[in-house]
């Protein structure tokens, strides 16, 4: 029980770290066509996430991998049930990744404009669909007694799930705008700040709407009323969101970004805590739900993976924090000149 519960927590944590890290890359990618006006703006925006996006994306592979390792039936059922959604995410991520590398290789506006579009699509599609996917998890999907999915792609695009998608999009937009504000200067910097200021109230609205809608569309609050201490997560999310605004006003953009990271982690855990012990609830009958207790791997596998995760995740965090601090300075013209070589 303790082992399975620990893994349930780690499962949530790894997905939360993925949203927190790659989330700002998605945000910058979504802002890209709107605030990247000049060629130099665009290069600066790519450079702002360039050294980090690849390492960030590995959190997805890790989150997916531990879902596979610790809860194989959940992995199998989730990915095959949400087939179209995951395929679209996959293609979007593929396009985004190559665009960063390909875009500046040929000095031709038509060539660049292809990859510029791919950067936007490759960022907005995963942001939206991960939100849709997780809102569907929070809500439960139509799984029958054999864990077979009795629905289709349109079943997944219900109003609550779409609101979840919007929440993710706006959270990542703010997150990306803040990272950009912290790492750029001049006009681009000002546009990033005003983007954060414009999207912030929308995020507050979307978050409140999502919290309220969750009371109607999901059973998440059952856990909250059983263990009122869990409300701390919601308090943290709301406080984080207010702190974001506070730091923007103080022009402390790294701090604002950090607060936004806490918001994203809390938002993920808002759902995860409410789900416990379910990983994939069935909307047909709660007895058909896949939970940490009926869908986990053997105790031996869980123990081995726990050792692996306890050794390597802190190590990964350490060298990723080192990489982040290496690239925390404002991007200069000289940086861009140099990167043009690659």
């Amino acid at each position: 029980m303790i082992l399975q519960s620990t893994w349930f927590f780690l499962w949530g944590l790894l997905w939360a770290i993925f949203f927190m890290t790659d989330g700002f890359d998605f945000g910058i990618g979504m802002l890209y066509p709107f605030i990247g006006k000049t060629e130099q703006d665009k290069c600066s925006m790519i450079a702002a996430m360039g050294p980090l996006w690849d390492g960030n994306e590995v959190w997805l592979i890790t989150a997916g991998g531990v879902t596979f390792a610790a809860f194989p039936i959940v992995y199998a059922t989730l990915f095959s049930s949400l087939y179209t959604a995951f395929m679209l995410i996959l293609f979007a991520l593929i396009l985004r990744g190559v665009s960063f590398e390909f875009r500046n290789k040929i000095d031709n506006p038509a060539w660049r404009s292809i990859w510029d579009k791919c950067i936007f699509i490759g960022s907005v599609v995963p942001a939206l669909l991960f939100g849709v996917a997780f809102a569907n998890i929070f809500q439960g999907i139509p799984l029958d007694a054999d864990h077979l999915f009795q629905g289709n792609f349109l079943t997944l695009l219900n109003p609550y799930a779409l609101l979840g998608g919007i929440v993710f999009v706006v959270l990542f937009l703010v997150h990306g705008a803040l990272w950009l504000a912290a790492r750029t200067e001049g006009k681009l910097h000002r546009r990033a700040v005003s983007a954060a200021n414009i999207i912030w109230p929308v995020t507050v609205l979307a978050a409140v709407a999502f919290l309220a809608y969750s009371a109607i569309a999901t059973n998440l609050y059952v856990n909250y009323f059983a263990y009122p201490l869990l409300f701390v997560i919601i308090v943290l999310a709301v406080a984080g969101l207010l702190t974001v605004k506070l730091f923007i006003l103080k022009r402390a953009y790294f701090k604002a970004w950090f607060a936004s990271a806490i918001v994203i982690v809390s938002a993920t855990f808002f759902g995860v805590a409410g789900l416990f012990p379910n990983l994939l609830p069935s909307s047909i009958n709660s007895e058909y739900s896949l939970s940490a207790f009926n869908a986990s791997s053997s105790p031996l596998t869980l123990k081995i993976m726990l050792v692996v995760v306890l050794i390597f995740v802190p190590l990964v965090l350490a060298y990723q924090i080192w990489a982040y601090t290496l690239f925390k300075d404002k991007i200069t013209k000289q940086d861009l000149e140099h990167e043009r070589v690659y």
């Binding site: 360039g50 050294p51 690849d54 590995v58 890790t62 596979f68 390792a69 194989p72 791997s297 990964v316």
Partner: peptide, 30 residues
Amino acid sequence: VGDVFGSLLAIEATAAFFLESTLIGVWIFG
């Protein structure tokens, strides 16, 4: 097979692929 096979993929990501992907960014921009 997830009990056996899934853990190998997860270990690959945490123990190796992370290092490769994080450091390649450092190499390009560093």
